[in-house]
Design a protein around this nucleic acid. Sequence first.
DNA 1: AATAGACGGTTACCAATGCAACAAAAATTA
DNA 2: TAATTTTTGTTGCATTGGTAACCGTCTATT
Lengths: 144, 144
Amino acid sequence: MKKLALENFLPYRLNRIGAVVSQKFKSVYGAHHDLTIPEWRVLATLGQFEEMGAKAIGQHSSMHKTKVSRAVRALEERRWLRRRESDQDRREEILSLTTAGRRAYADIVPRAVAFEKQILLALGSDATKLLASLDRLERTFEEN
Amino acid sequence: MKKLALENFLPYRLNRIGAVVSQKFKSVYGAHHDLTIPEWRVLATLGQFEEMGAKAIGQHSSMHKTKVSRAVRALEERRWLRRRESDQDRREEILSLTTAGRRAYADIVPRAVAFEKQILLALGSDATKLLASLDRLERTFEEN
DNA sequence: AATAGACGGTTACCAATGCAACAAAAATTA
DNA sequence: TAATTTTTGTTGCATTGGTAACCGTCTATT
């Protein structure tokens, strides 16, 4: 019977590494230790774009709309996020960060960047190769 | 305010790619469409090593013991897996695939290998670089 | 303008999963 | 050998996440 070495199997490895990195990433939340990954993604997206609807956030951060909806509510309850009704389209809610939300963003971003840098540093000369391969991999899957 | 581009952020990208690849990977289950990822990992591990305890399966496939426990039960109910009590240690259950289980394994493995090959092919000359970088990345995180 | 369909967002429901507590059986220590 | 601790594996509980149904609003067709 032909065998397969799970530990060398690409889908398994990619998934495993993603999980490990996400796990370690939680350490960068610092004081905001109870932030979840979906909440972080919403925070990061709004920090990046200032104002957006929930759908656009989901598209930019690869999250299901229910996940976005729940993360948005959590951030709202935390007073990091504010919603206002769009004038053009009253179905849509325009979301943006409050001052407290921007403060949290400004607090987390440098740690996140440092965390990423630490990984890339550990990779040494392989780092640029990895990034290039990831680009390619992403494009491969976007196409179909 | 210093910004971070989420779409270029390494932890996000790794996680996203892992999710996309896993999603696509489901297509290789073929007739066994209702198999879950944890079940596949247990199947793959037992196909690779013939006989193992649940703990060893969890270690080899990076799964929490409760996940293993439940996947094992599901495969057992499917009659793909058999348990027998260990003589040396009566806490442990020695697990192995039944004939049906080995048949399913033999059925899925070639598809899995083809799936992987397709990805590596799409990556072209970047493929070996990616694999090398993944090795490096895995080692980076194993160490601490 | 009226109707039908599409769309943004929320929620009820169910499946999946991790944590903590547990049982049973070693292994260790006294 | 008795008592304590560790280990394997399962299960109850709470959390998380996706599917589908839904509400209100917008758009297109007539």
